[in-house]
Amino acid sequence: MESVALVVNGVARTVEVEPRRLLVQLIREDLGLTGTHVGCDTSQCGACTVHMDGVAVKSCTVLAVQADGSSVTTIEGMAPEGGLHPLQAAFWEKHGLQCGFCTPGMIMTAADLLASDTDPDDDAIRHALEGNFCRCTGYHNIVAAIREAANKMQVGAATSAEGAPR
């Protein structure tokens, strides 16, 4: 057994794991954060996407021991309890989900995209979703939701900049 210390959604955690344990298993089974899903066994579907040290990763393709010392954000940590991240709000608003299984991974990937490209066009959004499958929505409303979130976040950024003390 190896000891893994990591910060998950802002909380420091230490977990004893076998080396073969995957980060997604640690998140789901050891920490009970079941918002991160497993949709495949070949690293294709993206349902397991979380942020590790600020970037989106497929947590089914990272060993828990590889995440030792890292900071991990899952869907549960995207907004304070009771609040919604603009992406979460936009997925709701634009009907960007049906069964909801792919949704957490979609949101985590989209958040990585919007961190580096605040105003992506539809092509850029669709390209960014290359590693996230959705079988329900045909992607149409997912793309619309991410576009909407990008707009809202830009407006938000502009207002907070204006409101900043000079």
Binding site: G32, T34, G35, T74, W92, E93, L97, G100
Partner: peptide, 21 residues
């Protein structure tokens, strides 16, 4: 109407079969 089932799904609080321990 926005869906009433969505808040749990977008916050990771859905409960699918494999989530049950």
């Amino acid at each position: 109407v926005k869906r009433t089932e969505d808040p749990k799904f977008i916050t990771g609080k859905g409960r699918y079969l494999d989530d049950i321990q």
